[in-house]
Amino acid sequence: MAAGYSAISSYSRVEIMHLVQQRPRRPIAELVDATGLHPNTVREHLQRLIDAGYVIAETERRITRGRPRVLYTAATGEPAASSPVAVRKARDAARRGDLLRTVYPTDAGETLSADALHQLDALVEDLGTAGFDPLVDEGALTVDLTPCPHGAAAEHRGTLCGVHVGLMDGVLAQAGGPLRVDGIAPSCDPSHCVVHLAVQD
């Protein structure tokens, strides 16, 4: 799928994602102030991120009078920040991955647990939807995203890379298993991107 149809293809959505990754439970007013966008535009962007499984919304519990606010948090897989959309997508990806491994057996099952393989299934599908063409090395636990479709955005590279790493880690966590993002390999070429994964206890 082309990056243009991705939930994070808009830099405004990347910026909003960055804000909710930095601090959870953000109300609309904070996101409007930080981005300078119209409240309705922020709501539309948040809905796209919720539909993609990247953000969750909760209604504020209030003890005072007044309408409770809706608070937005990045979906990280933690008990209080789990997205049903992301969990469903991970489950569906695992089912498709198992079917593919039945038809085209590999030796990945000898080195990685079923949970880890299912995490990679979810990650590859999510990255593909975001416009990447990931190449996974199960032995080295790397995900090569070269050429990065966002490599040309030099002025936003730090934010983009940080948001993508956070999203990848969230996908892995919500798929359930031992793998987490360990970091991105440094490179002089902005279009070159290799993400390292690690097995956590």
Rank of each mutant, 00 (worst) to 15 (best):
Y5S: 14
Y5H: 13
Y5M: 12
S6M: 06
A7G: 14
Y11N: 08
S12I: 04
R13F: 00
E15I: 05
I16R: 09
I16G: 07
H18Y: 06
V20P: 06
R23K: 10
R25T: 00
P27K: 05
I28P: 01
A29W: 00
L31Q: 01
D33V: 04
T35W: 00
V42I: 09
V42S: 02
E44S: 11
R48H: 07
L49I: 03
I50W: 03
D51R: 04
A52R: 01
V55C: 05
I56K: 00
T59W: 00
R61V: 11
I63Y: 08
I63D: 13
R65N: 08
G66S: 07
G66R: 11
P68V: 01
R69H: 08
L71W: 02
G77M: 08
G77Y: 05
P79R: 12
A81C: 14
S83H: 10
A86K: 13
A86R: 15
A86C: 13
V87F: 07
K89N: 15
D92A: 15
A94G: 14
R96N: 11
G97Q: 10
D98W: 02
L99I: 12
L100G: 08
T102W: 12
Y104A: 11
T106Y: 10
D107H: 12
G109K: 12
G109F: 10
T111D: 14
S113H: 10
A116W: 05
L117H: 04
L120R: 06
D121T: 05
A122G: 03
A122V: 05
D126T: 11
L127N: 07
T129G: 07
T129E: 09
A130D: 14
A130E: 14
A130R: 15
G131N: 06
F132C: 05
D133I: 10
L135W: 04
V136M: 08
G139L: 15
A140L: 15
A140R: 15
T142A: 05
L145I: 09
L145F: 04
P147Q: 15
C148W: 11
P149C: 02
A153E: 14
A153C: 11
A154C: 01
A154R: 15
E155S: 13
E155F: 02
G158T: 12
T159E: 14
C161D: 09
G162E: 01
V163S: 01
V163K: 09
G170A: 04
A173T: 05
A175H: 03
D182Y: 04
D182E: 10
A185Q: 13
A185T: 12
C188N: 07
D189H: 03
S191P: 00
S191G: 03
V199H: 15
Q200T: 10
